[in-house]
Write a protein that binds this DNA or RNA. Structure first.
Lengths: 193, 193
DNA sequence: AAATAGCATTGATCTATGTCACATTATTTG
DNA sequence: CAAATAATGTGACATAGATCAATGCTATTT
């Protein structure tokens, strides 16, 4: 436990073992079974979660009742509704385990304490959020200019492994198309080969 | 000069006057005329720019030759291609002044120095990027679930002032619809009143 | 004031994707 | 292991918005 976290942190910043030991005390380990929710809409996002094992999805349900997946969080990534976690306002998002998960949870007070005691974590989180922003900007542009097929192609280029772990209708939701459309796109690709 | 910058920084973090004085030395003021470019695609984004006055747009041109506006940067905001600025790789974006602008430019080495000397700026930039991420996530979800009219409505709720300063076809591009569609949407709204 | 260029509007099609309905196939779960 | 449930595939049809093309504005510029 914590090895992956240590590794991921040191990919971006350098901290001493002592500092990491303090950091560890701020987390609470938590197992979350498949289909259980880390966060439900209208609740405040009390934790930011580091994923040691498993896979979660963050999604929103719009006024028409359609689900839209904002993010998949795999091992080594974080899952939370940033906006709610930071402001303490109720979230519009849901975060659900798609597999049995092992998480490391951190509350907002613990997070504040971490940043206060070891300010270099500001840098760590800045870098994480930057990467997330860059990915989200690309998805936004893709939603403007790519066809369903192009979006699907890019996904299998960038995250080939995700396809094996996530049902197709969730891939469709992540791409912003219906499951029927994705099914047809896949059919056409297969037919061409 | 620099008052707006000082104000914006202190909205998010607290720094001493001395620290701010050091910070100031890292910028170079620059006037940029309307229609001139701060960054052209295939160039490395050498500066991150604080906007003291004026208005810029960041946009990308896709394979089909269509422009897509990622962001408008008004007074008090920043403009840059984060990805290129951080990595030093050529940018795919263009940044163009839509009005005569007064900017404060900072190079990557200056930026690194600022973060090294006054680490609390890590926090400042983290908060900025967080806000940007939250807005971008909302736009992504909107692109999945909102009609052209809904997207336009939300824009005039959130940025009523921008409409007076930006030609309609650029608003359309920001929303991810064609100028014709936006024109029709506006016509329908007007007809209903 | 004429001229030129950029913007916005409007109409007539076209098309990718959505919607609805049902069939088929996997995967859970009692 | 069977029944229930969830996921995928396919067909017929509907539609929001794109595309293409012409026309009318409005601002600068000369």
């Amino acid at each position: 436990m914590y090895e992956l976290l240590y590794e991921k942190i040191r990919e971006n910043i350098s901290i001493s073992e002592e500092e990491f030991n303090f950091c560890k005390t701020l987390f609470q380990p938590k197992k979350l079974r498949k289909k259980r929710f880390l966060l439900g809409e209208d609740d405040v996002c009390k934790y930011t979660a580091f994923v040691e094992k498993g896979l979660l999805r963050s999604f929103i349900i719009d006024e028409k009742g359609t689900e839209h997946i904002l993010q998949f969080s795999l091992e080594g990534w974080w899952a939370a509704d940033l906006s709610s976690f930071l402001t303490g306002e109720p979230s519009k998002y849901n975060i659900e385990a798609l597999e049995d998960c092992e998480l490391l949870l951190m509350t907002k007070p613990a997070w504040d304490l971490l940043l206060e005691k070891i300010p270099v974590f500001e840098r760590y989180f800045r870098i994480l959020i930057e990467k997330n922003l860059i990915v989200t900007q690309r998805r936004l542009i893709a939603s403007f200019s790519d066809t369903a097929e192009e979006k699907y192609y890019k996904l299998i280029q960038n995250f080939p492994h995700i396809l094996q772990r996530v049902p197709q209708h969730m891939i469709a939701s992540y791409l912003g198309v219906t499951r029927e459309t994705l099914s047809r796109v896949r059919g056409q690709i297969a037919a061409r080969k």
